[in-house]
């Protein structure tokens, strides 16, 4: 069991990291040949981080668009964020000593439930609102269910079946420090851990890439100063002012 999960954990982590880096590299290096910032765009470089922050921290555009959806999405993401932070303790020794964290630990027990409620809310919208149902495919439902699964098994493991957290921590730290320790082979933890590995592997190949891609969206990260500052990107600069004549028409015609 230990050997299997150690191998799976390293595999999943590798796929996640390599996949994520490759995607981010692709986004970062693909040129944006034209200025297409979306109103209300900042007119100075320094305005861009502020705009990004408003989108990342409070989902500003979503709020402007649809309050119900915003609430569901925000609940889920806040729950997720809390859950992620709360898992830090498994990765770092002496984390309890970090100042300010104690405030957080008072609320951390709500992480799983908030996340699950948000997710079920989102799932419900996909069934109830005809427009959302129209655009949803299998993988959209799958992802929500996967995350519900993770949240629910997490809550059960922690609060109901009370998995031995010390053993979990030993195992995770073992993975992180490349000196594997015994796997806490309790059924509920096996399920929770497997689902998380699945999520990691799926992440770089799915719409979950929104978490990183958001920062590369030209309509949101460009400065509105095209008259003041000339934008030049390689392929566009090389395009002759005349029409680019493309491949000849096929011979069959």
């Amino acid at each position: 069991m230990t050997v299997l999960f150690v191998i799976l954990a390293y595999l999943a982590a590798t796929v996640f990291i390599v996949g994520l880096v490759a995607k981010v590299w692709k986004y970062a290096t693909t040129p944006a040949p034209l200025k297409i910032p979306q109103t209300p765009a900042p007119v100075t470089e320094t305005g861009v981080p502020g705009r990004m922050l408003s989108e990342v921290a409070v989902f500003k555009s979503l709020f402007k668009s649809n309050r119900v959806l915003w609430l569901a999405a925000y609940l889920f993401h806040i729950g997720l964020l809390l859950a992620v932070i709360k898992h830090f303790r498994f990765f770092f020794a002496g984390i309890a000593a970090v100042p300010g964290l104690s405030v957080f630990t008072t609320y951390e027990m709500y992480a799983g439930p908030i996340m699950a409620i948000g997710l079920l809310f989102l799932l419900m919208l996909r069934f109830v609102v005809d427009r959302h149902a129209y655009i949803s495919v299998m993988s959209d439902y799958f992802l929500l269910l996967l995350l519900v699964g993770i949240a629910v098994t997490g809550v059960i493991a922690k609060h109901f079946l009370r998995v031995d957290l010390v053993q979990v921590k030993t195992f995770v730290m073992g993975i992180v420090s490349f000196s594997p320790q015994a796997f806490p082979a309790e059924p509920i933890f096996i399920i929770h851990f497997s689902l998380v590995l699945l999520l990691l592997v799926y992440f770089p190949f799915s719409k979950l890439m929104h978490a990183a891609g958001l920062f590369f969206s030209p309509t949101r990260n460009q400065v509105d100063n095209p008259r003041e500052k000339r934008l030049v990107t390689p392929w566009a600069a090389e395009t002759p002012a005349q029409v680019e004549v493309v491949e000849e028409a096929p011979e069959t015609i």
Partner: peptide, 8 residues
């Protein structure tokens, strides 16, 4: 890549 089909 990044559309989550949120429906907004």
């Amino acid at each position: 890549d990044i559309c989550v089909k949120c429906g907004s």
